[in-house]
Design a binder for these strands. Structure first.
Length: 199
DNA sequence: ACACGGATACTA
DNA sequence: AGTATCCGTGTC
């Protein structure tokens, strides 16, 4: 399980090194294949820029705390607090390659009677809203310590370190030019492929 | 292309 | 109270 020291560095470096790690969430798990870094200071796209409540969250929680928030009236988005390095911030987990609990993920993502054609595994966690549904992450887990319980934690990736590429952040209207999105190279489980000419 | 839908932080 | 905004997804 990744310890607190892992998250006591700057968010960009954490976002890079989380690629290839495994996120374990109860009986489900997946390899992190897409992340984005946000800085707590000077980053217009970070909640800390406009929300006093988020700035208070940074103050009151330790590195490795889960920051879960509700967006677009429908989706929970899962971040981890990074604190204690050169700058504080968050890493948004944007996509996973499922490794355990795939059947349960499929039930959560596509409830109701089992369809005649099952959705491909690449669609289960290929986005921040999708992976929260697939893992069962909600606001109930907001603020929990991800360095305490191995059943809700990041774990070092098995085998060799996965190669990542960087790209601009997506889905935001401000400070989107920063190359703070990181993806596992040529991985079909990411939300959006890297734009041309990057890496 | 568009609808879906709620928390947060503004203005007043 | 009313308004603008928001790190998204599925279907049109």
């Amino acid at each position: 399980m990744l310890d607190r020291a892992f998250f006591q560095r700057d968010p960009v470096r954490c976002a890079q090194e989380l690629i290839g790690c495994e996120l374990v969430w109860n009986s489900c798990a997946g390899v992190v294949v897409e992340t984005e870094a946000y800085a707590a200071v000077g980053d217009e796209a970070s909640h800390t820029f406009v929300r006093p409540s988020t700035r208070a969250f940074v103050e009151r929680h330790e590195a490795g705390a889960a920051y879960v928030y509700f967006n677009y009236g429908m989706y929970w988005l899962f971040n981890v607090l990074v604190k204690g390095g050169a700058v504080d911030g968050f890493v948004l987990i944007r996509a996973l390659q499922p490794t355990r609990g795939v059947a349960l993920m499929r039930r959560r993502r596509f409830p109701g009677p089992a369809g005649l054609k099952p959705r491909p595994v690449e669609t289960l966690c290929s986005g921040p809203g999708k992976l929260a549904i697939a893992l069962g992450i909600t606001g109930e887990q907001h603020g929990i310590d991800l360095c305490r319980n191995p059943k809700k934690a990041f774990h070092a990736g098995s085998g060799s370190r996965i190669a990542w590429v960087s790209d601009v952040r997506i889905g935001i209207s401000k400070a989107a030019h920063l190359p703070w999105r990181f993806l596992a190279a040529e991985n079909p489980h990411v939300s959006v492929r890297e734009s041309a000419g990057r890496g």
